[in-house]
Design a protein around this nucleic acid. Structure first.
Length: 491
RNA sequence: GGUUCCAUGGCCGAGUGGCUAGGCAGCGCUCUGCAAAAGCGUCUACAUCGGUUCGAAUCCGAUUGGAACCUCCA
């Protein structure tokens, strides 16, 4: 399959503007996305980032690119700070719960996968773990050490930012400069080993309290915060690859350090396009594990939280997220979600209707132009909100066709139906959940009541027919009287 | 404190130097025994104050308010 003729442009954080997307290797895309640190349940903010990149992955594939999507699992634990007695999150959690660190890792990795599956995310092609690449991390640390861009202090290896900055630009991604950083870095305890506060650890000596540690040329220790991503992206995508993604919050220092490590080790700019997704906020503040301002997916699905009136289907939530651009901040609220859910149902109803429409002799609607607009939206840095506005236009046309106010030829109708389905299900990754609402048994019961109500209505027994309708409504079943008979929906 | 970003109609949320995004709610209509649902139509906004321009919500400056990063976080 050849690449669809397209003008995909992406917003590249590195240059601060949109650029035409041209992969390093023709027809192939290497994409690395920073995955979660698995020390607690994944929250919706995390999910947003991975859902956004899932959409990007899907669209790149749709365009015909052969994509290798790598997303890591951070299971080695990042240090809480750079102090000597620093304890990483995974060890800390393990100590609290009296569990093996890898037990924690396993538990939350499974949770992470489950949640993303519910959101209909495709799995990445490779999902490497930090603990599975200790050898490679030691090797890269040694390479950087050999090149003189890192130094050893008491069993720990630190990256020499100042020295690196002489021939490179530390801060190119986040727009910082090193002087500013030096004058503005807060003073933290236990940084006496480092030459300069902005230096960061490639390898840290393990203290006796550390549960996770490995043997290295410098003694027992564990890898630094940023090394795993440099190592694993290089290993699976090469020294230079196309897309590196992650949340905005990782821009600095994490991604900045990744660039520095890769350039120091390989002498090349590792990434062509840096893509950063914006935060999901709750009450106007960013969701964050450490501050506790979070909403967990199971609370969202069940509605078991004071924040929500009811539970929401993962696909409706995904639609809610797709209605905002991935680079915009999105605030999570009950009202916004309810509004989105209704729109989502409308979209699904329209799609169901569309597949039952009949072709006519002539077309009153220009499908090709519509389709082009859809692609233009997606090609413009994956603008899903605009795409969705076009999808609603399509739904309007579908209704018009149904009312005989518009028509499409067989060829146009097929293209229309296929394109709409492909955008909604294949690219946006939504699911048709209307069907899921109607379990066989329930619909059997309700159909019986609908028939009884019809008999009552035929006998003009309005009291009974209204009672059936209203009682059903009370238990959350909405009857819908239409020309072709009565259907129902479950709220 | 430093750096960066944002402020859009009742709500959510795109866009952007002249060409009414879209969704939800509201209102009107169609349908209906009455409703509901559904569909159709409609409501025309861009924080404040200056400036640039034939023209600014869109560019520039200031002000106010908010956010992110600077410390682990998607």
């Amino acid at each position: 399959m050849s690449i669809k003729e397209n003008n995909l442009s992406v917003y590249n954080t590195l240059v601060g503007k949109k650029e035409t997307f041209i992969p390093v290797v023709e027809d192939h895309v290497g994409m690395y996305v920073c995955g979660p640190t698995v020390y607690s349940n994944v929250h919706l903010g995390n999910a947003r980032t991975f859902i956004s990149f899932d959409m990007i992955y899907r669209y790149l594939q749709h365009l015909g690119y052969k994509v290798r999507y790598v997303r890591n699992i951070t299971d080695a634990g990042h240090l809480e700070d750079d102090s000597d007695d620093g304890e990483d999150k995974i060890s800390k959690k393990a100590r609290l719960e009296k569990l093996e660190p890898m037990q924690i890792v396993q538990h939350y990795t499974v949770d992470f996968h489950n949640v993303l599956r519910l959101f209909n995310n495709l799995p990445p092609d490779i999902e490497p773990t930090a603990t599975g690449h200790i050898v490679e991390q030691i090797k890269m640390a040694r390479t950087i050490l050999d090149k003189g861009l890192a130094y050893e202090v008491d069993g720990s290896i630190y990256f020499d930012v100042e020295k690196y900055n002489k021939d490179n630009n530390y801060g190119e991604l986040s727009g910082r400069n090193i002087e500013e950083l030096q004058s503005n870095t807060r003073t933290l305890d236990g940084q006496k080993d480092k030459k300069s506060p902005q230096d960061f650890a490639l390898w840290k000596k393990a203290s006796s309290s550390h549960l996770q540690h490995w043997e290295s040329p410098w003694g027992e220790g564990f890898p630094g915060w940023h090394l795993e991503c440099s190592v694993m992206s290089t290993k699976y995508l090469g020294e230079q690859f196309d897309i590196h993604g992650g949340g905005m919050d990782l821009k600095f220092p994490h991604h900045e350090c990744e660039i520095a490590q890769n350039k120091a080790a390989n002498g090349k700019d590792p990434v062509k396009y840096w893509l950063h997704t914006n935060m999901l906020t709750l009450n106007g503040k960013r969701m964050s594990k450490s501050t506790g301002n979070t909403l967990n997916p199971d609370e969202l699905f069940s509605g078991d939280t004071p924040l929500l009136d009811k539970g929401f289907h993962p696909s409706a939530v995904r639609f809610f997220m797709m209605q905002a651009h991935y680079r915009s901040m999105l605030d999570f609220s009950n009202d916004a979600l309810l509004a989105s859910e209704k729109g989502y149902q409308r979209l699904m109803n329209g799609i169901a209707l569309l597949s039952s429409l009949e072709a006519k002799k002539e077309s009153t609607f220009d499908v090709d132009t519509w389709l082009k607009k859809c692609y233009t939206a997606m090609d413009d840095d994956f603008n899903t909100p605009i795409l969705i506005s076009h999808l609603f236009d399509a739904i309007k046309i579908a209704n018009q066709i149904s009312d005989n106010k518009a028509s499409l030829t067989k060829q146009d109708l097929d293209l229309f139906v296929n394109s709409l389905n492909s955008f909604v299900f294949e690219i946006l990754g939504l699911e048709d959940v209307i069907v899921d609402n109607n379990s066989d048994k329930l619909s059997g019961v309700v159909d019986m009541l609908i028939q009884m109500r019809k008999d009552a209505r035929d006998n003009k027994n309005w009291a009974l027919s209204d009672e059936i309708r209203d009682k059903l409504k009370e238990v959350g079943i909405q009857l819908k009287d239409g020309k072709e008979g009565t259907t129902f929906s479950v709220n």
